[in-house]
Design a protein around this nucleic acid. Structure first.
Lengths: 361, 361
DNA sequence: ATTAGCACTCTCGGCCCAAGAGTGCTAATA
DNA sequence: TATTAGCACTCTTGGGCCGAGAGTGCTAAT
């Protein structure tokens, strides 16, 4: 009894603090939640919770606020699963249904998630390691530069310009282009890159060799998601309303470091099956000590219907059930975890469905 | 004499205030700039300048700070042209030379400009109204959706997915695609859209009619820069360091409104030949009352070598010498205008050259 | 037209104080 | 043993007060 009530108290403290952003005291607690005991009892519990490191007092004789550990426990064990409101559910589909291309969808998804959570939202574009090549188009732009446009079966498009010392002759270029398209169609990207390298070894394609080499490099880097690894962010303005001034500057610095955020989120979603949460120092990012990150992978079938086995198993390493990309939200440690988690999960599911639908060509 | 010294004083006040961010008093002025007169004289001048609306006192017996009008006068008449430092000049070329595609270049340019100015930087991608079609690729993604990729001669790539009730048969699609590419190659976008509409009128292409119509619409909207009108922003984090807290929230809100910013900048660069400056309320944007915007168009030949006349004059309306896109920086009203203006101009020139080089195919 | 001098004004930081909120402890109670 | 009432104690917060400092505006002299 006593043990379980303590955790009920913890939960109440976290909830109230999330709402009010002010240290919550024992009397306030008894009044708001009917715990059936007096404030004195609560005081004892809170004192114990402080001993155990779940709560902390900003100063003697103030209310308590949750520590990182408090939030962590809250998230792990106490947060109840809030279903998405009908309006939000409808919002997702209506808001995203009008989108017109993959980048557009992801941008909208970020904005949507930012709206729901009232926080920063981040969406990464799907990693292409498992995507297959659909088409390569090589377009000369002027005397020395060529534009290569690479289209994958998931609808991702990458472009890359090359500057060449000398333009390969048009005929060879054309033949080369046709050959690549013919041979690499529906091939996983890394494999396609290798095939391209094989092709240019042939003497009749020596004139396009530098171009081919660059092209192969581009396809490879596209597969490994370097550079291509676009990231869509929205809702940064909301931070200015929510965070205290002192925390703001380092937080914005951190957000500008897109690479760091990407890495953090991808780690987070690899460690967790569904939605992962990193609180404060758990983010291992200096600028985010007062922030928390909620993120989820998307794009891989969730636990259950693994479609593995019939996929190309030769090239792709061990990453078979890893999510392809991730979506997340960043806010203060005292964010509304329940809402945020549900929202992130919902958007992730939507995007997963979308990707799956596209791949089921 | 008296008139000219007053303006010297104004300039001094603006400069000092920009440096210190604190109200500047008469004695501080006489000490810093050797104006050859006593503080009492300066006091009289400042008093006069306040009468005329160039300066204002936060409260009686504090120093003065410039008003919007003060900044405006400073920018219009007093700001001396500061040459770009050697390091910055080198920075531009080295920083931008490694870029790999147009979006990449623009993103880098935004980051670069943000670094130089220490403020938010914005770069829009070139309007495509004058671009010509280079290639259209239609790729079926799955049973009901098609991906269209449109490539222009300036290296811009737009993608757009369509959901069709029924897939057109592959043969017709192929023929249609080839025909469009053959007929529309090197055609300005709006014209190309019209041609596509003509093509699908033919009975043999009735099966691709819905697709063709959508395609035409996409090409058109691409020409008018709707949706495609990508915008690259960098340096938002710097705001948190520079602006006072109260101004921050509305400013971020304004920045999130990309459309507003785009419109503002494009208006600004249309009104001005080179670099345009909008200060505070001149921006006509609530969130930017305490901010100033410096922007310049780029992509059209600057005053002098107009290449007009030999361009396709049939479709494009009156917008012949308008800049194609713009680059700008947003910061507090007390920003360092001189540096910002030079930096914006330099980046704009660089991008102009770049575009011109690409178009000279 | 400029300047020295001076009285005046206003902000800013420090200090004190009272109110309020909340705690921790002790002793009583079920 | 767990809970509770009561109470002394602590700490923040906001207001008011004050003196220092910076800066102005005015006047009278140059």
């Amino acid at each position: 009894m006593t043990q379980s009530r303590r955790m009920l108290v913890l939960r109440a403290v976290v909830e109230d603090y999330i709402r009010s952003q002010e240290p919550v005291g024992s009397t306030a607690l008894t009044r708001a939640h009917n715990l059936g005991v007096s404030s004195a009892t609560i005081r004892n519990d809170m004192s114990a919770l402080e001993e155990e490191g779940y709560l902390i007092q900003p100063h003697t004789s103030a209310g308590r606020i949750p520590t990182e550990r408090g939030y962590r426990y809250f998230v792990d064990r106490l947060a109840s699963v809030v279903p998405l409101s009908e309006a939000q559910r409808r919002g997702i589909t209506t808001f995203l249904s009008g989108s017109v291309s993959l980048p557009d969808t992801l941008q909208r998804a970020a904005r949507l998630l930012a709206n729901i959570t009232g926080q920063v939202a981040v969406v990464s574009s799907p990693a292409l390691s498992k995507s297959k090549l659909r088409h390569i188009e090589i377009v000369p732009l002027n005397a020395v530069t060529m534009l290569a446009v690479i289209i994958t079966d998931s609808g991702s498009v990458a472009q890359h310009t090359f500057t060449l010392r000398q333009l390969p002759d048009a005929v060879a270029l054309n033949r080369f282009s046709e050959l690549v398209n013919a041979q690499c169609m529906y091939m996983p990207l890394v494999q396609a890159a290798r095939r391209i390298r094989t092709i240019i070894k042939a003497p009749e394609y020596s004139s396009v060799r530098p171009l081919g080499e660059s092209l192969a490099k581009t396809v490879e880097s596209m597969a490994h998601d370097e550079g291509t690894g676009q990231m869509y962010m929205a809702g940064t303005s909301q931070l200015a309303h929510k965070q205290s001034y002192a925390d703001l500057a380092p937080l914005f610095d951190a957000l500008e470091e897109q690479v760091v955020i990407m890495r953090l989120m991808s780690d987070l979603s690899e460690e967790n099956e569904g939605v992962g949460v990193a609180i404060g120092s758990e983010t291992r990012t200096p600028g985010l000590i007062h922030a928390a990150v909620v993120s989820s992978g998307y794009g891989r079938s969730e636990a259950g219907d693994e479609t593995r086995g019939d996929r190309d198993k030769d090239e792709v390493p061990e990453s078979s059930s890893h999510p392809v990309a991730f979506v997340g939200s960043i806010g203060p440690t005292h964010m509304d975890y329940e809402t945020t988690i549900t929202a992130v999960r919902a958007v992730a599911r939507y995007l997963t469905d979308l990707i799956a639908r596209d791949e089921a060509a």
